[in-house]
């Protein structure tokens, strides 16, 4: 069944309308996930830089382990962010 307005112009069928709503919801989620991905990437990079800069100022015992952990987490974050971006690209 088609929906018409007063001027008899075509608007959409109920199925088309539902699809549009679903698409809008999907797009909102996609934008949110992209924003969070960028935020997490930036956060991880900043943490890594912070450790590197602080190590230049003060060298403490075992701080190389902390830096190694930070680079590992940064790598994991980059891989995770790439995977989530790839997953989202398949939607677009």
């Amino acid at each position: 069944m088609l929906l018409y307005n007063k001027t008899d112009l075509f608007i959409a069928s109920p199925n088309q309308f539902n699809n549009t709503v679903d698409n809008v919801i999907n797009i909102v989620f996609v934008v949110l996930i992209l924003l969070f991905t960028i935020f997490v990437l930036g956060f991880s990079g900043l943490l890594f830089l912070k450790i590197k800069r602080t190590r230049n100022q003060i060298k403490l015992p075992n701080d190389s382990i902390v830096q190694m952990l930070a680079s590992l987490i940064l790598m994991l974050t980059i891989i995770g962010a790439l995977i989530s971006i790839l997953l989202i690209i398949t939607l677009l």
């Binding site: 679903d22 919801i25 999907n26 989620f29 996609v30 996930i33 969070f36 991905t37 997490v40 956060f43 991880s44 943490l47 987490i73 994991l76 974050t77 995770g80 962010a81 995977i83 989530s84 997953l87 989202i88 398949t90 939607l91």
Partner: peptide
Amino acid sequence: VSPQIYSASFILVILIALN
């Protein structure tokens, strides 16, 4: 919502927790 979004959300939650 598409299932890819849930997978991406799962990954993001784990990444946020790690950081």
